[in-house]
Amino acid sequence: MTGSPGTRTVTAGSMTTKGAKAAYGLAGLAGLLALMEAVPRLGIVDERFLPPASEILGALAAELRTAALWTALGETLGGWALGLAIAFVAAVLAGVVIDLVPGLRAASHSTIEFLRPIPSVALIPLATLLFGASLGSTLLLVVYAAFWQVLIQVMYGVADVDTVADDTARSYGLSRWSRIRNVVWPTALPYIMTGLRLAASVAFILAITAELVVGSPGLGLEIQVAQSSGAVATMYGLVVLAGLIGIAVNLAVRVLERRVLAWHPSVRGEVAS
């Protein structure tokens, strides 16, 4: 970004080392915990509605020792992973078909642009009717939400194929299948990974939503049960856990993205840029 070596120093000051940055970050987190501890203790907010941080973390620790929580966690992540996988495969296939069939891209544009912004939560009543409080509901919502994220990126990706590369492949008489494998797929891969990253976080949100609202088994249901049974500290603890899993999901997909793209020789440039 910055042009010359001199440009950074004015603003950077003493914040140049990684250690200092981490120290500030830790201080920020400590500050949040202290605030969460002090606000209820000082009676600014009633402890019944916002327990002190120590109690929240204590409740979370207690929950983590129960088998039920781990089962719920497994169900949430299972639904998330399965839904994401279905959406991913379906979207990649759909994207390739749309690219291969002449005219389909132009013909499907209006339909995609209409269906894409439909909030997947609109399907909650349908999910409830069709599947009730089960994995099926989770899957319906997760797949619908994640599908569009991947599809749009796949379509950008296959449209981005360099015409010169494609012409070269044609002039050497590569078959259609071979062109897809050697030209289209490597070009589209970075886009597809971006789609996967976006879809992964949306899928996690929808998995939790289905559990929370429809009542499919999982972490969301546990939160809802904790709330309705008045286990306030437990509820907060589970919300914290949901945040931590959200971070883990993001990190995991980022690591995967970097690995897939770094391994692929033809897209190394993209990773670097």
């Binding site: 070596p5 001199g6 950074r8 120093t9 950077a12 003493s14 140049t16």
Partner: peptide, 9 residues
């Protein structure tokens, strides 16, 4: 002299 790198420009 740049503090961060100690380089004398």
């Amino acid at each position: 002299v740049y503090e961060s790198t100690g380089r004398e420009a």
